[in-house]
Structures are given as C-alpha cells and as structure tokens.
C-alpha cells in the first residue's frame, strides 16, 4: 500500500535534534529524531516509498507508521483523508450561531487615544449619542432570541462597550437589571457572563457599590503601562494623561472587593517594555487576568505602530514572552490563551470575533469598527433575525478554514483569522489577510509546537 504525507503536515525543529510533525488542520503531533523526519520531509511529492514504509513499520504494534496514520500525518494514497477532514471541519461552521452581544452604551468617550479604532473613524459631522434603556432592552431581547436558535454556545457573553460605557451608567444599570430578570425567567441562560470594558476614569464608590451586586460580572480596565507610557497612549481630549484617574478608579473597585482584569493595547510606546509591564501587572496590581490588544488600523493613528513589520514581529514575540511569565503564576492572558486552549484541547478555533453589535441609536451590526460608516450595520425591523441575514452569513464564513489561500498555514486551525476590519482597512476586504495579526498567529503556533517538544521530553 502506498502512503502520502498530509498536505496539512508541517515539520517543526525543536530542541535536542527532535522534529515535530504537526497536522495544522486536525492538530495531531508526532515527534521524531531529525534523521527520520528528514527522510519523510524529502519524499518527492509527499509520496512515501515502500522502502520507507518498511522502515516505519518496524518496532512491533505501536510503530511509527501506525502513529503517523493515527495522527493524520500520513494516509493511504487511495483514501483522500485530507479532503474528508477539511470538509468535516468546514461543516462545523455550517450551523448558525451567535454567542456574543456588544452593547455600545455610547459612541462618545472622554479619552482621546491615538489608536482607537472606534472614535478615530467617526466622520467629522458624526452626531454622538447615548443608548436609551429601550434600545438596550431590544438588544438583549434580540440576543436572547438568537441564542435560542443557536447551538453549542457554552457560555454566552454580553459585553458593555463604547465609547466609554460608564459615561452612560444609568442605562448600564437598567440593562444589568434587565439581564438579571431575563436570566431569572429563563430567557437568558444563567451562565451568561457580563463584561464591562471601561477606561476606568469614571469609576467611583457609587459605581463600584452598584457593580458589586451583579453576579458573573467581569470588569476589564484599559491600562497600557506605568504612568508615563499610559499617559502618552491614553490622554484626555485636552492632552492631559488619564493614569491617575484610572488608578483611582481601580482603587475604588479594590476597596469594594471587586476584582478587575486589564486590557493593554500594544503599540510602539510600550512594546519594547512589555515584559516589564507584564511583571508590573502581576506583582504590583495583582492582576489575575489580562488581555493584550493588537493595534487595529485607523487612518489617524499617527504612527502608533511605528514600522509595521517590526511592530508585528516584536508584538508576536513579546506576547509569547509574557505568556512564559504568566503561566508560572496562573495568569490568564486572553490573546494567547485563545490559541493555547485550541492547541492543548485539540479543538478548532474558527473565529476571532463575531456576534451582535447594538449601536447607541439602535442599528445592529457585526463590528464596532464600522460604527462611523455604518457599513455592515442594518436598521432592524420586528422580523429581523441576524442568523438569517446575509451580513452575518458573510462574516460567519470569514474563517481561515473557508479561505483557500490559508490552507497551507501552520496556524490554520488555531488562528481564528484575526480582525476582519483590519484586513478590510489594510488590504481591501474582510476576506483578505489581517497581516499584522498573522505574524502573531504563526509565531504562536510554532512556539506551542516547540514547547510541546520540551514538555514531552521533560525529565528524559
């Protein structure tokens, strides 16, 4: 019987002259010595000769041949296992589902961050507004209906976003009460998590006391580093820094016994010192969770990237360096853990984003990046169903697993595709590559495979 090496098989060099064979689609791994791996790597057209098969087939029952087949790294020539697996995994996307609701409580913000992809993309004549309680309730109702028709959503999420959501705190409170009632009467699952993404400057004791009463609430405060760096990155509209107000807000939460995580946007002002900033989050702020944001393109960014290629490569490496630090202390960094969880648990990570975005004026979209232009936003009527709408269908299939140009990528099944908005603004379409994110995805995949070699040979 003739065999063929899977087109999804990648060879990754690791320590001690070991090489991992990795199926980037189905996530199987077998580790070989360099010489044996080289014999396989140099087969012409991936077709394995009978002589090589005999070599692989030695060593009794648990031999290399059976392990390579089991991990889908090679397959009998007459069975196109690659094609079958690719089709099966694509089928995983065919069931329509929505698991995230973004409630944009206002599209205005009291800060003027140079990299913000929401505020900086507003047309000059844009009229800012605040969400009303009625629109908040209609967004939650729409989400509850979509969840009812969706399958496989383990933990639905409602995210309060902006602008700065706490600038509309009365409506945030009303929405939180409405969510609690919807959970109590079974319209929303009891495990629906709630997250408030805030710049932290408006948090006071009254807000902290009100938030303390909410179950299953996560708070994420944007903080880009110590005072000097943060103040450069995240100033008020008059140019003064926001650091002291953010720390005062964080202190209010701590005084009220509320745990908060942090969001840190990596840009040219903090990327070089990211490892030190990570240690500071860990040791001084006692952060239990963190999320790194990779910059999303906007035309007013004034060089927040610096050199884009340098930014992308350094950012990718720094996120990995910080993960090495965080994993020793059990700190969850969301950006890399999306990929780590997929790789470790062997599940496919289809998307990096998606869901319902409820704008302050009641229009419904898929991405807040388009809030200014209202591209990919629709005005819902009483029959509106995002699960049946062509915009959501287009975004559902915006996954590396449905984009043939990424079939040979080492990060194929753990990537998620990055930011469609960034791909659109940098490269002309949501179906193009998010090239900055891509560097991070590939570097992370290679790191995980090499780290697995170390873990598997630990103590040997």
């Amino acid at each position: 019987m003739n065999f063929k090496i899977s087109e999804f098989c990648h060879f990754v060099d690791g320590k001690n002259n070991l090489v991992a064979l990795y199926n980037a689609l189905t996530l199987g791994v077998v580790i070989l010595d360099k010489d044996t791996a080289k014999i396989l790597q140099e087969t012409k057209g991936g077709i394995i000769s009978v002589k090589i098969i005999d070599m692989l087939n030695s060593n009794g029952e648990n031999n290399l041949l059976s392990q390579l087949i089991k991990n889908k790294l090679i397959f009998p020539l007459e069975q196109n296992v690659d094609l079958q697996d690719y089709a099966t995994i694509q089928m995983g996307l065919s069931c329509k589902k929505i698991g995230i609701l973004y409630l944009l409580m206002t599209d205005a913000c009291n800060l003027s961050c140079g990299y913000c992809f929401v505020e900086n993309l507003m047309p000059s004549d844009y009229t800012f507004s605040k969400m009303t309680p009625e629109i908040a309730r209609s967004g939650i109702d729409l989400f509850a209906k979509a969840l009812e028709k969706s399958s496989g959503i383990e933990e639905p999420q409602i995210i309060f976003y902006g602008g700065e959501p706490l600038a509309n705190f009365n409506v945030v409170q009303e929405a939180l009460e409405y969510i609690a009632r919807a959970k109590a009467d079974g319209r929303l699952p009891g495990n629906t998590s709630i997250t408030i993404n805030t710049n932290g400057t408006l948090i006071n004791d009254n807000i902290a006391a009100a938030l303390k009463r909410i179950d299953n609430l996560n708070l994420a405060i944007s903080l880009d580093g110590l005072r000097e760096i943060h103040n450069i990155c995240r100033p008020y509209h008059n140019g003064t820094g926001s650091y002291d107000d953010v720390m005062r807000g964080y202190q209010c939460l701590q005084n009220n016994g509320i745990e908060a995580g942090f969001c840190c946007t990596i840009n040219r002002h903090n990327v070089e010192q990211l490892h030190q900033i990570a240690s500071w989050f860990m040791d001084e702020l006692d952060a239990k969770s963190l999320g790194f944001n990779i910059l999303i393109e906007n035309y007013k960014m004034n060089g927040m990237h610096g050199d884009v290629k340098y930014y992308a490569e350094l950012t990718a490496q720094k996120i990995i360096d910080c993960f090495r630090l965080f994993r020793e202390k059990g700190i969850y960094e969301d950006r890399i853990m999306r990929k780590v969880n997929a790789f470790v648990d062997g599940h496919i990570y289809y998307h990096d984003c998606g869901g319902i975005v409820m704008s302050p004026n009641g229009m419904v979209g898929v991405c807040q990046g388009y809030l200014g232009t209202k591209k990919y936003f629709v005005k819902p009527d009483h029959q509106f169903d995002p699960l049946e709408h062509p915009v959501w269908e287009e975004w559902q299939f915006r996954s590396p697993l449905f984009m043939a140009q990424f079939k040979n990528c080492i990060a194929l099944s753990i990537c998620g595709g990055g930011c469609p908005y960034s791909a659109d603004s940098r490269n002309g379409s949501i179906r193009e590559l998010d090239d900055i994110f891509c560097v991070h995805a590939k570097a992370t995949a290679e790191f995980l495979i090499k780290d697995l070699i170390e873990q598997a040979t630990h103590g040997q």
């Binding site: 044996t36 994993r327 700190i331 969850y332 853990m337 790789f343 470790v344 697995l452």
Partner: peptide, 21 residues
Amino acid sequence: MTVIVPKQTDFHAIKKMVTNG
C-alpha cells in the same frame, strides 16, 4: 529511531498554572 507521541498531560503542561478558572 526516536518516536515520541505526546500524551494529553504533555499538552496540558504547556499551560502550567493557567487554569481557565
């Protein structure tokens, strides 16, 4: 010839102390 098939525990060891709550 060296053949190592990583066990589930090897995969989990990548996460070290990170527990997903």
